[in-house]
Design a protein around this nucleic acid. Structure first.
Lengths: 242, 242
DNA sequence: GCTTATATATGTGTTTTGACATAGCGCGGA
DNA sequence: TCCGCGCTATGTCAAAACACATATATAAGC
C-alpha cells in the first residue's frame, strides 16, 4: 500500500529534523510512487539516463561501480532515510548502479520535479544538497578506508561506521543489529578479495571484537574496534530527510 | 587585485554554462573575497567549523583526509572552476582538509550566504548542488580506482582523468599540460606507497604511454592509457560555475 | 661555495594480499 | 530425497605491494 508523507513513521524518528505540515505537503506532492523491490533488484542502472531520485524508506541498498572486466566496487551502503540517486538525477546519466540489498521500499521523486523543488521550497532544496554532501562524506571515508587502511582496519572501519548509522536510526538492540551483507559485499566495499575478507573476518573473530551470525551483527568491543579502525567520526545528532 | 565576476576570464571559457548579467550580479554579490594563496597553503582544515565555500579561480588544489597515525589519502584534485568546501560549509565541521597544490587564487563565498542563494536564486542553488554531485562522482571514480585497480591501472586512470579535465578547460597544448603533482601526491591519491608509485611510473615510462618531466605531462598514447585504466568516462561538454 | 631539504631513482628482502583448490553447510527446487 | 547453488571456511602457493637502505639531482638558504 502507498505511504503518504503525512504521518510517515520513518520521518517521525528522532534522527531526523522536524518539518512543518506545509513542508511535508510539498514533499508529499513531489513523491510520485512508493516502490517495493525484492532483495537484489537493481533500481538504478549504470549509464541510465532517466534515473529517478529515491529516498530509502525501509531496508538496505548500495551503490556500486564496476570496471569493464567485471571487477566491482561498492561505493556506499544506504540505510532508511538516505537519499539515493541525486548524482544520477542531476548529471546526464548515472555513473553507478544502485541495488537493493534486502527487500526494500523506496519513495520515488521524479527527476523532472527536482528543479521545481529548488524553485518553490528553498528549504527542501537546501536539505537535498545537504544530503548530497553527506553522501559524499561517506564516500570520502570509504576512499580513505580503501586507500590507506589494511585489511583488518578496513573491516573494523566498515563495522564501526555501519553500527553508528544503525544506532542513530534506533536499529540497535542490546548491541545487536541486522546485518544483511554477505562476505562478498564486504569484500566489494573494502577493495579486498573474497577469500582474504573471509580470513580477515576469521582473525577478527578470534579477537572477539564482534560477532556476525544469522544476518545479525553484535558489537562486543566498540572501543577496540574504533581504535583498530582509527575511526572516530560522529553521526550528526539530527539530519534532514526528504 | 580583486576580480569581479563581471567579465571573469575563467567563466568565459567554453567549458562553462553561460549566465545572464543578472545571475552574474547575484554571484558577484555573494563573493566576499578573492584570495591568493601560496602552494602548500591549507585553506580548509580538518575539524574546522567555519570553513567558507571556494571556487578555484586559478591553480590546482586537493582535498585529503588522514588517519590519526598520519597516513594520508588524497580524495580528489581540483582544477579551475571547481567548487571546494561545499561539504565543509553544509555540515557542522569539515571532515577533510583542502590544500593549494600550486600558487592559487580562490573566490570566496561566505558559508553564511549559502542559504541566501537557495532562497533567492534557485538556478544558482541548483548549480551548486550539481557541482556537489559532480565532485561526488569524481570521488566515486577514485574509490573504484583505489579499491579495484592495480598499481599500473591506478596511475593510468589518474593520468587519463586529469588529462580529460585539463582538456576541457583548454589547458592542453600539443598533448601537453601542466602537471604539478609530485610522486608523493600521486601515491597519496592512489593508495600506494611512494616507492611503489615510483617503480610503477618507471614501468609505465618504459612502455612509452606518457612522459612526465619538469612539471609537465605529455600524453603519448591516450588509447593505450584508457585501455589499461579501463577508464572511458567523458567530461560533460559544459558545466556550471559559481 | 657549502649545507640542507625535497624529489626522484633503484636494489633487496619482507609482508600483505590474491589466486586456486577443496570442502562443508543450509536451503530451495526437481 | 537428492541435487545444485550460494555462502562460508581453510590450506597452499604466487603475485603485488611495502619497507628499508642508499644514491643522485636540483633548488633554496646561509
Amino acid at each position: 500500500m502507498y505511504v503518504r508523507c503525512y504521518g510517515c513513521p520513518l520521518r517521525a524518528k528522532p534522527a531526523f529534523h522536524d518539518k512543518t505540515q506545509e513542508e511535508i505537503a510539498v514533499i508529499d506532492q513531489m513523491k510520485s510512487d512508493h516502490l517495493r523491490v525484492a532483495a537484489g533488484t537493481e533500481f538504478i542502472h549504470p549509464e541510465q539516463t532517466d534515473a529517478e531520485l529515491y529516498t530509502l524508506f525501509s531496508g538496505w541498498a548500495f551503490r556500486y561501480k564496476e570496471l569493464a572486466d567485471g571487477r566491482r566496487q561498492i561505493l556506499n551502503f544506504s540505510l532508511p532515510g538516505d537519499l539515493i540517486g541525486l548524482q544520477a538525477a542531476l548529471l546526464d546519466k548515472s555513473l553507478y548502479g544502485a541495488v537493493a540489498l534486502t527487500d526494500a521500499e523506496l519513495c520515488v521523486v521524479p527527476r523532472r520535479r527536482l528543479f521545481k523543488l529548488f524553485e518553490h521550497t528553498p528549504n527542501a532544496a537546501y536539505e537535498v544538497t545537504w544530503l548530497g554532501a553527506r553522501e559524499e562524506a561517506l564516500v570520502d571515508e570509504n576512499l580513505l578506508t580503501a586507500g590507506r587502511r589494511n585489511a583488518l582496519e578496513r573491516v573494523a572501519a566498515l563495522i564501526a561506521a555501519l553500527y553508528k548509522r544503525a544506532e542513530q536510526l534506533d536499529l540497535v538492540r542490546e548491541a545487536t543489529m541486522d546485518f544483511p551483507l554477505t562476505q562478498q559485499h564486504i569484500a566489494d566495499a573494502l577493495g579486498l578479495s573474497l577469500v582474504h575478507t573471509n580470513k580477515t573476518l576469521a582473525r577478527l573473530r578470534a579477537q572477539g571484537l564482534f560477532r556476525i551470525a544469522d544476518g545479525r551483527l553484535t558489537l562486543l568491543n566498540p572501543r577496540a574496534i574504533a581504535r583498530l579502525a582509527q575511526y572516530f567520526e560522529k553521526e550528526p545528532a539530527r539530519r534532514p530527510i526528504i
